[in-house]
Write a protein that binds this DNA or RNA. Sequence first.
DNA 1: ATCATAAATGCGCTTGCACGCATATGCGCA
DNA 2: TGCGCATATGCGTGCAAGCGCATTTATGAT
Lengths: 99, 99
Amino acid sequence: MQSALTLLSALAEPTRLAAVRLLWDGREHCVCELVRVLGVTQSRMSRHMAVLKQAGMVIDRRDAQWVRYRRNPDLPAEQAAIIDAVLTSLDASSNRRAA
Amino acid sequence: MQSALTLLSALAEPTRLAAVRLLWDGREHCVCELVRVLGVTQSRMSRHMAVLKQAGMVIDRRDAQWVRYRRNPDLPAEQAAIIDAVLTSLDASSNRRAA
DNA sequence: ATCATAAATGCGCTTGCACGCATATGCGCA
DNA sequence: TGCGCATATGCGTGCAAGCGCATTTATGAT
């Protein structure tokens, strides 16, 4: 119960949801990139990433002056399924807008 | 985007998540039953149900002095899939506790 | 050593939301 | 009409969380 709730709370924020969407391509993304793409301040993004990390959704790795974030490959399958469903829903609604 | 976020916010609250879990059996449940089962005050439960209704997850029907809530059968499939995934995750974690 | 870039964090502010209590409203029944 | 049960809502309170700004920490280059 706890972990699912934590995951939901973490996702229920526009910037974090957008970040998850980007990170869900499986590749690594530094904070500075997310800041640029999502148009938020550096400190905000850093804290948002801490929330996602705390929720177990992403992992990070130091690489020179950058910190590279990516989706946590060890995320339990049931939780990954939640995120997949959410992203599918997002894609569906944006497709509807485009149509 | 908006609807998925609204749904996530609605789900990211313990009492509402528990209520959705109960309501997801497809049957009707009056507020008084939810109050009893979930152990919250009547006013709280009423407001929580208003949030779930606003998010499009449930519908209500007046029946004499009761208001019967049930899952919205017209909920878009992508959103229903999110909820199903969340409930599956909840069941998985409770099964792990039991094992 | 100094400087620049990237990221995290301390701090204070503000807003949103959950909460309880009291009250209003809707409905059935006597 | 008056009473009782079910539900909704107005209102005030407290806490959690988002926010920006400034600063610190980490790393690399000159």
